[in-house]
Design a protein around this nucleic acid. Sequence first.
DNA 1: TCCTACAATGTACACGCGTACATTATGACA
DNA 2: TGTCATAATGTACGCGTGTACATTGTAGGA
Lengths: 343, 343
Amino acid sequence: MRQAMATRKEVAELAGVSEATVSRVLNGVGPIKESTRARVREAAEKLGYQLNAVAASFARGKSGNIGVVLPHVPKVHLFSTFYFSEILSGIGEAVRESGQGLLLLYRDPGEAYDYASLFATQRVDACLVLGASYQPREMESIVRMAELGLPFCVVDQRYDDPRIPSVCADHVTGSYLATKHLLDAGRRRIGFLNGSARYSNSADRAQGYRKAMEEAGAPADPDLIYEGNYSRTSGFEAASAVRRDLERLDALVCANDRMAIGLIQGLREQGCRMPEALPVVGYDDSDAASLFDPPLTTVEVPFYEMGKLAAERLLEGRKSEEGLRPFRETLSTRLIVRKSSLI
Amino acid sequence: MRQAMATRKEVAELAGVSEATVSRVLNGVGPIKESTRARVREAAEKLGYQLNAVAASFARGKSGNIGVVLPHVPKVHLFSTFYFSEILSGIGEAVRESGQGLLLLYRDPGEAYDYASLFATQRVDACLVLGASYQPREMESIVRMAELGLPFCVVDQRYDDPRIPSVCADHVTGSYLATKHLLDAGRRRIGFLNGSARYSNSADRAQGYRKAMEEAGAPADPDLIYEGNYSRTSGFEAASAVRRDLERLDALVCANDRMAIGLIQGLREQGCRMPEALPVVGYDDSDAASLFDPPLTTVEVPFYEMGKLAAERLLEGRKSEEGLRPFRETLSTRLIVRKSSLI
DNA sequence: TCCTACAATGTACACGCGTACATTATGACA
DNA sequence: TGTCATAATGTACGCGTGTACATTGTAGGA
């Protein structure tokens, strides 16, 4: 039942002009007499004609799509993760306003992903990389994109290479503030539950933590640094180790809220009263942070704004003549005090 | 610095074959001598040649993209909503496996959205509609798609028109179970905080609630039915009205967890002890439900599965010859009892 | 050896658009 | 009226595929 679309030729005939003129009217290009424009518009309307976006992309040599490359983690509902969902919301907002398409792409973390071919095959005109890590193959792929001068931006992952554009958050300060908050409350032996070390933002958090500890003259004890993977489950599992070290611990800083929640749940399961047994601070200020019992002291990170900014920068660059210059934006973070860190 | 891509012609020359053969090898079409296949592969590899996806789409007359149409609500971080994020995660999983592209599209709720033109312009080969409502203009647009026999599927919104394919959840039963749970606990005067009436899933919830009440011989009191918009804020605001009616209320069923949480927070702010003052049940079994204090009794809805199923059905239909036949799948819901509904 | 069937490959073109370049209309000005 | 700049439009072609159809190669049977 799908009716064949009217062709540009038919529109041209009906309006009594050439196909080129139809094209010009529909794209708002070049000088056109007002009467002609009206005739063409009318003819197109009457025939129900619409530009074929694929053909137009082809002729222009641009897909009109911005790609967002996401890690595919089996069994994880990626969009349901505060981190990704917020960043994506920001990206969505910016791209929506621009009229470009938003194409979602999955990559296997750790695998080499051929970003360049995304451009070679013209599936995207520019792309945003989320959840990137320091792993060699992943870095190579990204560096290669930079070498080719392709328009892209990495979100929340720092690389030393200055050619790699990125939008990050100041996790060093965020983590520093979280730790200092506990130190100011008189805690000295503060542990740290970090996420996977392969992300720069994990390293940054660790750095901020260490910095605060050193400044306070209570250097971080390596034995009190735990590693999870940012999942609630990993926090839950870390509870055993933390439980064992409980006598040597005054407080704990977690690299995200989910792990903090998992940890608290795990400790409770092991008979600890929380937060009395161990003040905890989270990180991200996710929805869960304020809803959880106890509400989490945490670090607010402008994920939405980061996504939006990254997309906007990319879209700007797309317009300007000689692509976009590499850039690095770092947005600030902020401590939010709630009950989980109080005795 | 962007190096020009090698052309199919060059590959053909290097391999000593025609362009058609190159195309056949790369698409795995038709019988090809093994030695030829190898030569072509090698040549393509050597030249770093890759099919131009846009050109291929153009030649095929298909974009290779599945569209997901989302409502754009200003200031709402759509992906950060349990409902959308779960459905999207499911869709993402199915589409990822299929090798199609996943194109995100925004529509203004209530406005007429020209779905048909999405196809006419070939931006998508099929599409999924999320967050659709009963509003006349929206319905018209969707019916029009059905009339044109376009491949699409509406998620979690029922229409009477049998030509409209959809994947829904059994909210009547879900809401029925939630209400019955309270009735079984001896509550009689049960109120209902619904979401916007323009969604069929709101109507279904209301119906399940009324059904349970009638069966129990305690017909729903219209005065005890409140309306929010599924946001936490709207739940918070509803607290005033509920507070006023507190003497006439034994318990309250909410149409989603966010509103339930907002309501409880609002009532607490007005000096009520919760859940003692009013047992509440939520709906969705979002992450927040189990984290909140008190943990919410709620109804589990397989949003992820719904998204996945809808996408799979669409992708199947794409393969089969004469498109997809209209279908309606209804997935079941399940009550989960926690503390918010206990005295 | 010739014929036939099918495998393997080549030839040629359409797909629908954007746009460089060519051409014609228009109006201002001398 | 003639000239010229510019507006307005037309002509023609390329973009890189997929694929229908034509052609050639090959093997097996009569």
